[in-house]
Design a protein around this nucleic acid. Structure first.
Lengths: 126, 126
DNA sequence: CGGTATCCCGTTCGATACTG
DNA sequence: CAGTATCGAACGGGATACCG
């Protein structure tokens, strides 16, 4: 693990900063994390994902999946049936990413109450 | 830890999804992660952070720090000297967040080459 | 079914200038 | 030094309609 937790962690991060935040930015892409999370269990079809996530437009889901495929996070398998089927699944890279992402998501879930308390008191009093 | 890695992880995530992705979105906020990373070592002053991060506008850094303060991730200490000094430091909450964030950043650093390879071949051939 | 194309609005963000 | 104010440019992202 390229030293991030070593002597001067900030510098190690700063060095690869641009590229890292770019990829990290994708995690913030509203749907990326959810899409990955939905696929941890098993591969799923397009509309299946759309239903599960809920509130995502067809276009945004398409964009998200395409971006993830571009980065080698998931596979896209087309079954030339009628009507056509397209199945998305995590690659090994995507599966490996899902680990730290899940941990981060777990942290958020765990501390959500605390965060909202802070927000409330900040907004109320400053 | 509200079950995220249990039987049906996707559903557990989907339930708190909206709020989680909102907070997770902040991680994607271009500079949030970097700001947190820069403060892991020790508290720092505004322009010190600005210099370290590099490429961030004064306004965006202000916004980022304000948002993080609002969520209780960091403290803001004003020393009424002339010229004024303002020091930012991680709270316990922020420090606890820095753990999974650092892991995720480490994952990105570790797999950056792989990701870029995928992107290149995707862009070249499709 | 699983997309792509088009339009259009709100927000984001950088640059610049000004304040305490 | 550490902000706030204001202004455009760029982008994200929804709605809709159409294609293979």
């Amino acid at each position: 693990m390229p030293q991030l937790c070593r002597a001067r962690p900030s510098h190690a991060l700063a060095r690869s900063a641009r590229k890292v935040i770019e990829v990290l930015g994708r995690m913030g892409d509203k749907w990326t994390v959810l899409a990955i999370a939905m696929l941890v269990e098993r591969p799923r079809r397009f509309n299946e994902l759309k239903r599960m996530i809920g509130g995502v437009s067809q276009q945004m889901l398409t964009r998200t999946l395409k971006a993830l495929k571009r980065e080698g996070m998931l596979t896209r398998t087309v079954y030339p049936t009628i009507p056509p089927q397209v199945e998305y699944g995590l690659t090994e890279l995507g599966r490996s990413l899902s680990v730290p992402v899940t941990h981060l998501a777990a942290w958020v879930v765990e501390h959500l109450g605390e965060i909202e308390t802070h927000r409330a008191s900040y907004d109320a009093a400053g």
